[in-house]
Amino acid sequence: MADTSYASSSVVRSSATQKMETTKKIEFEEKKTYTMIKRGMDIIGASMGLIFLSWLFLIVAVLIKIEDPKGTVFFKQVRVGKNGKTFYMYKFRSMVSDAEEKLKYLLKYNEIEGAMFKLKEDPRVTNIGKFIRKTSIDELPQLWNVLKGEMSLVGPRPPLPR
Rank of each mutant, 00 (worst) to 15 (best):
R124N: 08
A115N: 13
T126W: 03
F75P: 07
M89R: 01
I128A: 07
K76D: 12
K82N: 07
G81D: 03
K108Q: 13
N83V: 01
G84I: 09
N127P: 00
L119T: 14
K118V: 13
V125H: 03
K102F: 06
E100M: 12
R124P: 12
F87K: 02
V80L: 07
I128C: 05
L106K: 06
M95N: 11
P69Y: 08
Y90K: 02
I128Y: 01
L119A: 10
Y109S: 09
M116A: 14
D68F: 00
K85V: 14
I64V: 15
K76H: 10
I66E: 01
K130Y: 05
K65D: 04
G81K: 01
F87E: 02
R124C: 07
Y109I: 00
S97K: 06
K76Q: 13
I66Q: 00
D122E: 08
L107W: 00
L119C: 10
V78F: 00
G71S: 06
N83F: 03
Q77M: 06
E113R: 09
D122Y: 08
I112L: 09
I64P: 11
T86E: 15
L119N: 08
R79L: 02
T126V: 04
K118Q: 10
K91L: 14
D98N: 15
M116N: 11
K130Q: 15
Y90I: 07
V73D: 05
K65N: 05
E67M: 07
K104V: 15
K82R: 14
F117S: 11
D122A: 06
E121V: 10
F75G: 11
F75S: 10
V96E: 12
A99L: 11
K102G: 08
F117E: 13
K108C: 10
V125S: 06
T86C: 04
G71Y: 12
Q77A: 01
S97V: 03
I66N: 01
S94P: 12
F87S: 05
S94T: 15
R79S: 05
Y90P: 01
